[in-house]
C-alpha cells in the first residue's frame, strides 16, 4: 500500500523548480495548503532502511529545496497515508510552521563538536581506606570517587565551554548546545548562522583553534536547520547555568 513520504515544509508558492527524485526514485512534489506546502513523494508505507544511501537521498532532497528557499526539514522515515492527512498537518500547525520558516529564512545550521583533554585522568587518587572495610565499603567509596570525579569534570568543563561557546554564539543568530555528551566531548553545538556570515563563522572556528590549542574542533555544515525547527523541543540540553 502506498502513502506519502515527507521531507519538509516550505512556503507556497512558488512551485518546485527542480525535477527531484526522492526515496525509491519517486518524483518529489508539493502538497499545498494556503500559504504552506509539504515536500513529499509517493512511497510504500514501510520504513526505508537507515543506511548511507537512503539517508543521503532524504538529505539531498532537503538540500536541493533549501538552495532555493527556506525549508523545515522533517525527521527521516515520516509517512502520512493520504494527501488529506498532509493538509490537516499543515492546517493544524500553520502558525508554528509560518513563524519557524520566518526564523530560519536566509540562515543555515553549522555543526560543531569540541573535544578536550579530560582533566585529572592521569592521577586518580590511590585508595587507602578500602583495606579496612568490606566489599560494601569499597563499593561505596568507589561510587563516591566516581561522583566526585564527575562533579569536578563538569565544573571544569563548564568554565571552558562557556569561554569557547561565547566565541561562536556571537557569530550566530541562535544556538543549541549539548554539554559533555561523553567525557571526552566537551560539547556539541548547533549554530543558526546567516548565509552571508558562514565564512565569518568558519574564520571564528579557525581563530578558536589557535586560541584554544589544547582543544580539537570539528566543524560541519552548512546544514538545513535541523536543530531549530521544533520550538520548545529544540531547547538546549542541559543549559549553561549562567
Amino acid at each position: 500500500m502506498d502513502g506519502l513520504y515527507l521531507y519538509g515544509i516550505v512556503s507556497f508558492p512558488p512551485p518546485l523548480l527542480q525535477q527531484l527524485r526522492g526515496l525509491g526514485e519517486s518524483p518529489v512534489f508539493l502538497v499545498p495548503h494556503q500559504d504552506l506546502a509539504a515536500v513529499v513523494s509517493r512511497s510504500p508505507l514501510s520504513p526505508w532502511p537507515v543506511d548511507e544511501a537512503h539517508l543521503t537521498l532524504h538529505e539531498t532532497v532537503v538540500e536541493e529545496v533549501m538552495a532555493a528557499r527556506p525549508i523545515l526539514p522533517i525527521r527521516f522515515n515520516t509517512f502520512l497515508r493520504i494527501k488529506e492527512a498532509v493538509i490537516a498537518l499543515l492546517d493544524e500547525r500553520a502558525q508554528a510552521f509560518r513563524s519557524t520558516l520566518e526564523r530560519v529564512e536566509g540562515k543555515v545550521e553549522m555543526g560543531l563538536r569540541v573535544l578536550w583533554e579530560v582533566p585529572g585522568e592521569a592521577h586518580a587518587p590511590v585508595d587507602r581506606e578500602t583495606k579496612f572495610g568490606g566489599p560494601g565499603t569499597e563499593y561505596l567509596s568507589r561510587r563516591l570517587r566516581d561522583e566526585e570525579r564527575q562533579a569536578g569534570l563538569r565544573a571544569a568543563g563548564e568554565r571552558m565551554m562557556r569561554d569557547v561557546h561565547a566565541l561562536f554564539q556571537s557569530l550566530a543568530v541562535e544556538s543549541w548546545l549539548q554539554r559533555l555528551p561523553t567525557d571526552r566531548l566537551l560539547f556539541t553545538g548547533a549554530y543558526l548562522v546567516e548565509r552571508y556570515r558562514v565564512n565569518t563563522f568558519r574564520e571564528g572556528v579557525a581563530k578558536a583553534r589557535q586560541e584554544f590549542s589544547h582543544l580539537s574542533f570539528l566543524l560541519t555544515g552548512p546544514w538545513p536547520p535541523y536543530h531549530f525547527v521544533n520550538g520548545a523541543h529544540d531547547a538546549t540540553e542541559d543549559t549553561l547555568g549562567a
Binding site: 502513502g3 508505507l45 532524504h58 525527521r75 515520516t78 497515508r81 535541523y226
Partner: peptide, 30 residues
C-alpha cells in the same frame, strides 16, 4: 563523519510529525 552527522540530524532532529506511521529506531544506542 558526514554520514554520522547526517544520521544524528535525520534521526534525532527535524520536525516531528505524529503521522499515520512513525518509525522508532534505537536512537540512543546508534
Amino acid at each position: 563523519i558526514t554520514l554520522l552527522e547526517t544520521l544524528d540530524r535525520l534521526l534525532n532532529r527535524g520536525v516531528v510529525v505524529a503521522g499515520d506511521m512513525t518509525l522508532s529506531v534505537a536512537n540512543v544506542d546508534l
